[in-house]
């Protein structure tokens, strides 16, 4: 079939392009601009080339934060994806239970990030928080302000509580789209519970799982508000993720050059990893 080329079509997308330019491209280019220059104030800038990039990439501070990010995202994905699938599989398919479950699932998603942070910050406090006090009473030594492990556990539990619902809802949408006839055929064919999951449910969830995986990866990799509110990056630097480090650098120390370079690197890492995940997951899909 001949493709028709119509140059007028470009005018149609122009408004969107302008909008995207103002909201994304221009701010991004500003950051790029900062990242290659130096300043001593007075709005005077000097060309710095790739110096800031070299600085950032050779600093331990960057690699430590990046490692923390990667570990955090890996843990989050390893918990939330399977947990989300399990919950979705066990949700009712019809009846009064459906709206009840859906509302319960949606609730955490409706709460703003900083509120979630505040809730858990208070909840986990040893002096007044319900969780902190309870654990204390049970004889478990828990203090997220002083103990790095406790701080991590708190952040992970909080993120699981906040975002597993998203995975659940996406999986559930995939599951309810499976016609009854498939389950009936599976019964006739004598399929086990595992086979039903492996050959009917999982294939139907594959697409939504890809979306869930990418969303949760990007989101957890960019986590900022919750650790900022709950731990402030501490104790020590144990919960200082790239985003927190970035803000410290840019706002706290006003090192615009390195901060801008870090932003660009951060951005490229997310882009690269998302692209890799997407490619790997879609090509494995095409093969199987």
């Amino acid at each position: 079939m001949e493709k028709t080329w119509n140059n007028k079509a470009w005018f149609m997308v122009l408004p969107v392009l302008v909008l995207v330019a103002f909201s994304a491209v221009i701010p991004l280019m500003t950051v790029v601009n900062y990242s290659v220059q130096d300043t001593f104030g007075n709005n005077e800038f000097f060309w710095a080339g790739t110096d800031w990039y070299v600085d950032v990439l050779t600093s331990d501070r960057f690699w430590d934060a990046l490692t923390r990010n990667l570990i955090f995202s890996a843990i989050i994905l390893a918990i939330e994806i399977p947990l989300g699938i399990i919950i979705a599989l066990n949700m009712p398919k019809k009846g009064l239970g459906v709206p009840v479950c859906l509302v319960l699932m949606a609730l955490p998603l409706l709460i703003p990030w900083n509120v979630v942070g505040t809730i858990w910050q208070v909840f986990g406090r040893v002096d007044i928080g319900l969780l902190g006090r309870t654990l204390e009473a049970l004889g478990i030594n828990y203090n997220y302000v002083q103990n790095p492990i406790d701080a991590w556990v708190t952040l992970i539990v909080m993120d699981v509580w906040h975002w597993t619902s998203l995975v659940v809802l996406l999986c559930y949408a995939g599951l309810v789209s499976i016609p009854d006839a498939y389950y009936q055929a599976a019964k006739i064919d004598g399929a086990s519970r595992w086979s039903v999951f492996r050959y009917i449910q999982l294939p139907k969830m594959k697409r939504v799982l890809l979306i869930a995986f990418l969303l949760r990866f990007m989101d957890s990799f960019m986590i900022y508000t919750e650790p900022f509110v709950v731990t402030g990056g501490g104790p020590g630097n144990s919960t200082t993720f790239l985003s927190i480090d970035l803000v410290k650098m840019a706002i706290g120390q006003f090192d615009l050059g390195p901060a801008a370079a870090l932003s660009i690197i951060y951005f490229l890492i997310i882009l690269l990893l998302s692209w890799i995940f997407y490619t790997v997951m879609t090509t494995s899909d095409a093969q199987s």
């Binding site: 006839a181 009936q184 055929a185 009917i200 199987s288």
Partner: peptide
Amino acid sequence: NIAQVFQFPVIYDTM
């Protein structure tokens, strides 16, 4: 121990 063929085709896509 009954076999049934359904009105609409059911196949296992990934197999």
